[in-house]
Write a protein that binds this DNA or RNA. Structure first.
Lengths: 227, 227
DNA sequence: CTTATATTCAATTGATTTCTTGAATATAGG
DNA sequence: CCTATATTCAAGAAATCAATTGAATATAAG
């Protein structure tokens, strides 16, 4: 084993630098932390909410969030008794890049999602720009089926909010003379799939938009937030 | 601790999906693996060369490379007795995104590099486009001081190759009537800094271009490769 | 076939990481 | 001040990971 000695100070520099880079890597090396980032792409959340959504204990959630914060991927803001966590700037883009790379490179992800979601491939007929045109001209109803708080944090123009949990009670609000396009958090969220299922069995012509607010934001589309 | 049970199959789906995403994360959670990716941004390398450049044992290097390969971040190709590793498609962009995020978010990186590199801030006066203009019109000499093999794998148009190790012997080749702009692998490589130091003490008016081929490739600039 | 070389495999050790549990801190309201 | 609640801290057990070592493959050349 020959070890050719480079100048030691250069080696120390490199070690330092890549050690820093790896802090980001380590932060996204845990499935639970990635799920936290995914949720935070939808908007700020409290520790307890995040724990609930990821189904881990509050203490564990807090610990993960602090690791993310140490890597400067999220920021915390204390509001009275609660602590709101939100994504730091530029992190959404990075996360989407990671997700995109995973989707393209890891066939297993495809397999996993398809096998669970099943109907997925039949449900992305509408592109973003085209959708807007059709919504604008009244040809389709755009439906945001995420929880109301996420709708308020940012939604497609012309989209109306009916959270999936209330959908079966509020079907009457939807005009029956045009298509409904439902969307939720993005390709790995099942809300819109369930919504389309429910709408179709209620006699609506319903489609699912596969992408979600994080994707649109990354693509530069203008989203509407309630004040 | 209240655990609100969501539908268990959805949870399993999410766990699977984020587990897959985390494979990418885990792959970039080690400083040495990031350094390997960084080097591979410059072009394909053999296992032994990578071990040498990162100053780890060959066995260890091979192990890291196999982790990267399992995450589909690199690809291996056997040429006779040697195995060439190269970046998979889309990975360079991802790596640069990670690096960029680290630079913006982790002040410590700045501190570490500045404290070692010292002169760094005084050495990036030329932007990419402007440089090309000036090189084209013969106002400056563009000098690639990386090892010759990296030059061959892709370099700036109008750049000439003089590896740092040969620079002191080949100073005579450079015209003295114009500025020299030296570049190497990118902001975390010390070659160009050393080259500028040497050139200046030999009486040249020398500048350092901070960015490197991976950055330019990401920015869509056309690079020249020897056939 | 034998030898030399590049790479990989396998087993071990010590270090990190994750999750859990129970306690500690901080804040709002009575 | 006292209580309830949201969050964080601290310590420990189990799992995972990184680096080392020595052996095992595979390929080219003699």
């Amino acid at each position: 084993m020959k070890v050719r000695e480079a100048e030691p100070s250069k080696r120390r520099l490199k070690d330092d630098v890549f050690e820093q880079f790896a802090r980001i890597g380590k932060a996204v090396a845990s499935p639970k932390r990635l799920e936290l980032l995914d949720i935070l792409c939808q908007g700020p959340r409290t520790v307890e909410r995040l724990a609930e959504l990821t189904q881990i204990s509050v203490a564990n959630s807090s610990q993960h969030l602090q690791i993310l914060r140490a890597a400067r991927l999220v920021e915390a803001e204390k509001h009275g008794l609660f602590v709101q966590y939100c994504l730091a700037e530029g992190v959404e883009t990075f996360y989407l890049g990671l997700r995109g790379l995973a989707e393209r490179r890891l066939a297993e992800v495809e397999v996993a999602t398809r096998s669970y979601l099943g109907e997925r491939e039949a449900m992305e007929p509408v592109g973003g720009g085209e959708l807007l045109q059709r919504a604008l001209s009244g040809q389709v109803t755009v439906l945001d089926v995420r929880p109301a708080e996420e709708y308020r944090a940012g939604h497609l123009p012309y989209a109306r909010s009916i959270p999936l949990s209330e959908l079966h009670l509020r079907l009457g609000e939807l005009p029956r003379d045009r298509d409904v396009v439902a969307y939720c958090r993005g390709p790995y969220c099942v809300f819109a799939i369930e919504a389309v299922k429910a709408l179709r069995s209620a006699g609506f012509s319903a489609l699912r938009l596969e992408s979600g607010p994080p994707d649109w934001r990354a693509a530069g589309l203008p989203l509407v937030a309630e004040s």
